[in-house]
Write a protein that binds this DNA or RNA. Structure first.
Lengths: 193, 193
DNA sequence: ACCATCAGAATGAGGGCTCATTCATTTCAC
DNA sequence: GTGAAATGAATGAGCCCTCATTCTGATGGT
């Protein structure tokens, strides 16, 4: 039986290998070895190397989207929702470094190839932010002159860059809470006195 | 004579090719063809393919640093300096898409390889931001509880993500001025009313 | 002015290696 | 016993870099 279990096992292995070596330096045999299957087996579950990357991303970001949406349900204030989003994203990136690396490096490296795909799953993630901001504007809590589509990119860019703090070769002891607080503060109130 | 001219020519060609295809998909022969030299000639000027990337990055970001520092000299107010930085960065990325792509993709893709280098040249760029913020704090204009090293990452992350708006496959008509104004506003005053 | 000599710049064909992918064979589940 | 699943050795396409060779133009001897 082609098991969903094995499918997952390969994805998990691939995430690890991609994170460690980058897509282009990752060998199929590395992934196979990590997943404890034969090279050929991978091709029973995936079309090609690139298809593995897509699947990794879909799987991981999908889980994150679900998780965040669930958390947001219990909170109606857009300002608080923003804080939740920020904290949850950073938490996940700190915990799941492999995902952070894959988003950080691979999402960009393969930008040109992945674009169509990105239009689906990744923008779904970004749109969570945009919706929160729009909601805030409708409730008169956020400034009207902000373009949610710009702001969502600002926030994601911020988070993505910040999450490198927990990447390899960083001795940072900064906590997610501290950073979340700071980012949230700047986004809400700005840097000026 | 090994001419500096040819060196530049190869760098220019490489920038173009890297931007278009990404580092790993760029062929030495592509670069050679674009530069109108023989494949072998490239190895008279560069150690290897990766060395070309380093040089491209060094060259381009170096010019940008010089240029921005010059502009900042004429302005003492940190708040205005921030605005200048933001606008100049985005202007450059819009004008010089090749550089934008190289920063965007390669800086990340080759993160692991380039790290030593990054500690030098790239952080020099980031430190311009940090210094402005510190200055603002010393003058009592920016909030004291902001960590300049976090804020610099926020701003760079923001700008880097935003500059994708002018990347290939975007029909955006947004102007640099509009976006600069918006980003500056959020950074200074935040999103709340 | 002319040519011989030469240093070193430029060339580009192809060696040699690295993988992504395939497929003949084996193993396994029922 | 049969067909699906798994295997991993074999394949071959692709490309970085080398190096034997050619080209260029500067120098100096006559």
């Amino acid at each position: 039986m082609k098991s969903a279990d094995k499918h997952r096992k390969i994805i998990r292995a691939a995430t690890k290998v991609f994170a460690k070596k980058g897509f282009f330096n990752a060998r199929i045999s590395d992934i196979a070895k990590e997943a404890k299957v034969a090279d050929g087996t991978i091709y029973l579950y995936f079309k090609n190397k690139f298809d593995i990357l897509i699947s990794v991303f879909e799987q991981e970001i999908g889980k994150l989207i679900e998780n965040i949406l669930l958390l947001l349900e219990n909170e109606t204030d857009p300002s608080a929702q923003l804080e939740i989003f920020i904290q949850r994203h950073l938490e996940e990136m700190k915990k799941n470094r492999n995902l952070a690396e894959v988003i950080h490096i691979e999402l960009r490296q393969t930008n040109k190839l992945i674009r169509d795909y990105r239009k689906n799953k990744f923008s779904e993630y970004l749109d969570i932010i945009a919706k929160i901001i729009l909601q805030g504007q409708n409730e008169g809590k956020f400034r009207q002159d902000i373009n949610p589509d710009i702001a969502k990119l600002m926030l994601f860019g911020t988070l993505d860059e910040i999450s490198r703090l927990w990447g390899p070769g960083s001795e940072e002891k900064v906590t997610v809470e501290d950073i979340s607080r700071q980012i949230t503060a700047i986004f809400k109130h700005g840097m000026l006195h």
